[in-house]
Design a protein around this nucleic acid. Structure first.
Length: 393
DNA sequence: AATAATGTCAACCGCACGGCT
DNA sequence: TAGCCGTGCGGTTGACATTAT
């Protein structure tokens, strides 16, 4: 097995670094910087190759490394980013200050991947039980948001056609649609369990191990959002909105009845330039202004702002878009949600001149997730045992 | 208590890429 | 243009730690 060219001509030490070697490397780089890595070992008095020095510095000795175990937010973000970027660990690590690609990669391989595999295996072998979610050890994660905002009623037949064998209970309202792996569940506010374990399992079977239970496995965080355009100026909705609107339109058309609540308005009024008003909290009389409820666009989606007479179509990086948008928190008590977002924002690159300006973007109203994730907060009863949390370590 | 199995993570390896000559 | 070199990246290894039997 040949060595790298930078160290092939010299006798180099291999294996773990000693404290003395670390000290030499730290002293040298602190004083002179690393410069050309291939010359570092000689100048620093180390019997190592430059590549080894570089690795040791970047992955271990660098002063800005965070150390310690990964936080909930970091784990969530890694999963999210991995769904977008795949095994591009260096890219993922750029969104995690103080973490290295190697660290992220190891964390994924030793921890997250196993949970995902376990989830799949559990699903295959325990048809009568809801599978453990790979993130179920993180009880604060907002994996399944159930809003008290009733927006979209589906009768059982319709649900059947949409969601396969899912047998919806009467107090379950499916609010959003089958856009890829998304399904948004909403409660009408009545008490009692909304989904039996069997139903959860059926949802899981239909939408995969992550899709159903995270609403959208690609979202960070998973939130209900409305686009609200205060001033009466054209609101340029991203393409993902139109997809969702199309689903609503189709729903209304297929039902042929009609309209439940504001669905008609939702299906017909949402066009570029229309005013979209959020209706959260107004569930006493079920009268809603024109509204839409949709999930945040996938981070992996390119948000295409439609062309106008004065500007060509523009593709926006959703990450940058989130960073530039004006975000209002509907639930100040939901600090976890807020912290997640604030943290996410802090990892965003600064706005570039090519990024959309805030005035081009919709305000985003974030709805609280309520109640807590199903896996941790299903009410106790004989028929609806909370899904067991799995100690995966 | 001894051993095996499993998990973690630092370090290595080979490859790709870009800059330079 | 080809070859060399330095750098960065992702996959893999292996030493050590921990847990299970």
């Amino acid at each position: 097995m040949g060595h790298h060219s930078c160290c092939s001509k010299q006798k180099v030490k291999r294996g773990l670094w000693s404290p003395e070697e670390d000290e030499k490397l730290i002293n040298y780089i602190s004083t002179y910087g690393h410069g050309c890595w291939s010359s570092v070992p000689k100048l620093a008095g180390l019997q190592r190759c430059g590549k080894s020095c570089r690795l040791r510095w970047i992955n271990y000795l660098r002063p800005d490394l965070k150390r310690g175990s990964f936080s909930q937010q970091e784990a969530s973000l890694i999963i999210e980013l991995h769904s977008i970027l795949g095994n591009r660990w260096a890219q993922i690590a750029k969104h995690l200050p103080g973490r290295t690609d190697n660290e992220v990669k190891n964390f994924w391989n030793s921890s997250i991947k196993k949970r995902l595999l376990l989830s799949h295996a559990h699903d295959r072998h325990h048809q009568h039980m809801p599978p453990p979610h790979p993130l179920s050890i993180f009880p604060q994660d907002h994996l399944l948001h159930v809003s008290q905002n009733p927006n979209f009623y589906l009768d059982e037949a319709r649900a059947e056609s949409l969601f396969g064998s899912l047998n919806l209970q009467t107090n379950l309202i499916v609010a959003a649609a089958a856009q890829h792996d998304q399904v948004t569940l909403q409660s009408d506010g009545s008490s009692g369990p909304m989904l039996s374990n069997l139903e959860l399992d059926q949802l899981h079977s239909n939408f995969g191990p992550l899709g159903a239970f995270t609403l959208n496995s690609h979202q960070v965080p998973n939130l209900y959002a409305s686009f609200y355009d205060g001033p009466l100026e054209p609101l340029q909705l991203p393409s993902v909105v139109h997809h969702q609107v199309d689903v609503f339109k189709q729903e209304s058309h297929d039902r042929g009845d009609g309209i439940h609540g504001s669905q008609h308005a939702r299906g017909t009024n949402i066009e570029p330039g229309s005013v979209v008003v959020n209706d959260y909290g107004d569930k006493s009389d079920h009268i809603y202004p024109p509204t839409t409820v949709l999930t945040m666009p996938k981070l992996c989606d390119e948000m295409a702002v439609p062309a106008t007479s004065s500007a060509p179509q523009e593709i926006i990086d959703p990450l940058l878009c989130l960073g530039n948008g004006i975000i209002h928190y509907q639930d100040p008590l939901n600090m976890q949600l807020q912290n997640d977002y604030n943290w996410l924002m802090s990892t965003m690159p600064p706005s570039s001149s090519s990024s959309p300006t805030p005035s081009q973007l919709p305000n985003i109203l974030l709805y609280p997730a309520n109640p807590s994730p199903v896996f941790t907060d299903l009410p106790d009863s004989d028929q609806h045992q909370p899904a067991p949390l799995v100690n995966l370590k």
